[in-house]
Amino acid sequence: MSVFMDLNIVNSHDKNKLTSIIETAAHLGYSTVAINYVIEPQKKKQEIPKPHSVSDIFEKFPMVQGKSTPIKVLNRLTIVASDASHFRPTNDYKLFDLVAVYPKTEKLFHAACMTFDVDIICIAVGERQPFHFKRAPVNGAIDRGVFFDISYTAAIRDSSMRRYTIANATCLMEVCKGKNIIISSGAEKSLEMRGPYDIANLGLVFGLSEGDAKAAVSTNCRSVLLHGETRATASGVVYTMKKPHTLEEQIEDKPASKKAKTETA
């Protein structure tokens, strides 16, 4: 059985808020969450924030309900792109475990699906999707292993946004046939989180089949993480790390890195 993940928790400067959301996520049964840093480039050159180290948030990560492992916290970057110049692969992106793009125009959506080196493409939830999903780019994204992200918090907050979320999601399902979808929270408060089984059920409302809906909170999320890893490494085959200083550390490090790989693989 695959574990549940929520790959979108909006980053906030208030640390207490973040801890309470992550604690709720662990209590609801999510094994992995990703803190989402959203940037909206205004100027040509936009600073990319450095992700905070996840170990700053907790001394000891809360235990996942029903499991004896602590919750895993990742960092995710979302770029709201309304112009082609907004997405430029720089080394700053490599600091994040996941990179997502939210294309505002059809041209950018096409580019994001076919060429951009990203893991996730976000779908509009707070407004009507300004363009139609075409089969060619969506299929291209599915072939490349890029996933589409629908966040459900907007649907909880407001009834018109709920309409947009469901409408956009159903439009997308028509084209992608339920493949390569992840459903994430986008929560800013702990009360906006919902349990993984609730979301699998919500997937049915979005037009997914039962199996696809469950995959949207579990196995598909795992694929996203693996895709994120291949981006940081050379196709996931070779990757570089700093050479440890002492021999002892080296011996200790190697099995640890291997373990980390088999864990996620």
């Binding site: 459900y152 909880i156 408060k189 009360l191 906006e192 989180m193 609730d198 979301i199 059920n201 919500l202």
Partner: peptide
């Protein structure tokens, strides 16, 4: 799904 998407009760956030 109706229970999932309920977000507030008398203008107070709830879940």
């Amino acid at each position: 799904s109706a229970l999932t998407l309920l977000g507030s009760y008398q203008n107070e956030a709830c879940a």
